[in-house]
Simulated assay, not measured.
Amino acid sequence: MTYRIIDTSPLEAVAKPLIDGLQWEYATRYRDHRADSEASAAQELARYPAALFAPPEGAFIVLVRDGETVGGGAFKRYDARTAEFKRVWTRADQRRQGLARRIVEELEARALSQGYRRVYLTTGFKQPEAWGLYIDSGYVPLFDRSIAPEVHVRLPFAKDLRKPFSTDALDDLRPREPPGEHR
């Protein structure tokens, strides 16, 4: 099967399956933890203007197979040297084929070419597949792993793109608030 990476915007039709898929995923995974999980998921996906995911400070990509969007992801500026990954997703029937890793690698390459040295991201406590992907891809957990994930709510990870697996340049990205608090 042939896959193509397309640079786009969350406002384009090719991105709609990614946005819709993420909204469904967030709503269903967190249904037991949020009173109105569908509204909460929609609000999360609308939280950032599309312009934040456009070059030169951001990127939004989709992975297309046979004319269908089957994955994608994005980043925006976190600070002058750090990209913040958002919206990394693979369609359920396309998982466990290395596509999410390919999306992460494509985003990392774009972040490096746009001058970023590090990546910061958060994922939810009900997304263990994402934790595994990020850890296997060299991301450092920035939370206390001895505490139950649901206490943290959002699980932050980071990676030094120039020195993978190094933690020297990541300390300022560690959360300052107690577990369960988030911005």
Rank of each mutant, 00 (worst) to 15 (best):
V62A: 06
E106H: 07
R176D: 05
D168V: 08
E25S: 14
R4S: 13
D66K: 10
G67E: 06
G138H: 00
L22D: 00
K16T: 15
D36A: 12
V140G: 10
Q43I: 02
P149M: 11
F60C: 14
V62D: 00
L107W: 00
A15R: 05
K16D: 09
L133C: 09
E25D: 14
R34W: 04
Q114H: 07
A41E: 04
P149T: 09
V140Q: 13
V64M: 05
P164R: 03
T2W: 05
P49I: 07
Q23K: 01
E68H: 06
P49N: 09
V62Y: 05
A148D: 14
D171W: 08
F125L: 06
Y120M: 08
R145Q: 13
V14D: 03
G98I: 00
Y30Q: 00
F165P: 01
P156G: 11
A51R: 13
Q97D: 07
A109C: 07
R34D: 05
S113Q: 09
P49K: 06
F165L: 12
P49M: 11
T2D: 14
D144Y: 07
L155Y: 09
A169E: 15
R102H: 14
R95W: 05
Q97G: 03
F165Q: 12
K126Y: 05
R4Y: 11
S37M: 04
Q97M: 11
Q94K: 03
D32M: 04
P56Y: 09
P175H: 05
H152V: 09
G132R: 13
A59W: 04
L161Y: 05
G98V: 04
L45S: 01
R31E: 15
D93F: 00
Q114P: 02
L170V: 02
L112G: 01
A100M: 00
L133I: 02
Q97A: 11
G73K: 01
V62F: 07
G71H: 08
R91D: 15
P17A: 12
L11E: 15
Y78Q: 13
A169K: 06
E108F: 04
R81N: 13
S40D: 15
A13G: 04
P17N: 12
A92I: 05
E129P: 00
L45M: 02
M1F: 14
S137N: 10
A83Q: 01
M1E: 10
I19A: 10
G58I: 07
R110G: 02
L161N: 13
A54G: 06
L142V: 08
I147A: 08
V104N: 05
W131Y: 01
A51M: 11
A50S: 14
D32G: 09
E181I: 10
V140W: 03
E108I: 00
E12T: 09
V119T: 10
L112Q: 06
S137K: 00
Q97E: 10
A35E: 14
R176T: 06
F85R: 10
L52I: 03
E57L: 13
P179W: 08
D32T: 09
T69N: 09
P10K: 03
G132A: 12
P164I: 07
Y134R: 10
E106C: 12
G138M: 01
V104R: 02
T90P: 05
V70H: 08
K159V: 02
R31S: 12
D79F: 05
K16L: 13
G72D: 10
R47D: 14
